[in-house]
């Protein structure tokens, strides 16, 4: 998927992610995790190439690429008045699975807590049916219980939709639970880390 990709401080990186595979990425803050995701989503100028299957990033109009390789940022933004306007159709089941009130679509955006925003941002991204997912700390603002709930739901969605996923995570226990492979950014490069069986 990535071939010789380099952005900012980070040195050329090669990485391949299979369909339905979750690769976790960790590292100290400021080491370029988010920038790497942004480069893969083509939001930041970068060197090297990114491929989705046989499709090269540079050969696709940028907005089509981003619809296929969808990034969910750590801090989500909302531009309409109510929550529901950001969604194409009703998603009661998903709301329940994420532990959010079924009435949430009627709410004004200002009423959402940061944790609710974060969960809804993932849901909003998935409705575009992306072919790959880039998650930037999707559970950073959640308490223990919701984190488990969201992890479970996300992993199910990922396996079901066969999405290759690059997941930036902080907490070691989460990485152990969700990751198929784990890389840690050290000395401006991706170092593979063992997962405990």
């Amino acid at each position: 998927m990535l071939r010789g990709l380099s952005v900012g401080e980070l040195e050329a990186t090669d990485l391949q992610i299979a369909t339905g595979e979750i690769v976790c990425l960790s590292g100290p803050s400021g080491c370029g995790k988010s920038r790497l995701l942004r480069a893969i989503a083509d939001l930041e100028p970068h060197c090297g190439s990114v491929l989705l299957g046989k499709q090269a990033q540079a050969d696709l109009p940028a907005h089509q690429w981003r619809k296929a390789v969808m990034m969910v940022p750590a801090e989500s933004h909302w531009w309409f008045e109510t929550v529901g306007e950001h969604f194409h159709h009703d998603q009661q089941d998903a709301l329940r699975a994420l532990g959010i009130s079924p009435q949430a679509f009627e709410w004004p955006v200002a009423r959402l807590s940061s944790g609710e925003k974060q969960r809804l941002a993932v849901l909003r991204a998935l409705q575009y049916k992306p072919h790959a997912l880039l998650l930037d700390e999707p559970t950073a603002n959640l308490d223990e219980d919701s984190t488990m709930q969201v992890e479970q739901w996300l992993c199910n969605q990922i396996r079901e939709r066969l999405l290759p996923v690059l997941w930036v995570a902080h907490r070691e226990d989460q990485i152990q639970r969700v990751a198929d492979r784990h890389f840690h950014i050290e000395d401006r490069r991706l170092q593979p880390r063992e997962l405990k069986p």
Binding site: R66, A68, P73, H77
Partner: peptide, 13 residues
């Protein structure tokens, strides 16, 4: 943030 959020969802510039 809003503009890039829209771009991330695949909107045209």
């Amino acid at each position: 943030g809003e503009i890039e959020g829209r771009l991330m969802l695949g909107e045209h510039w």
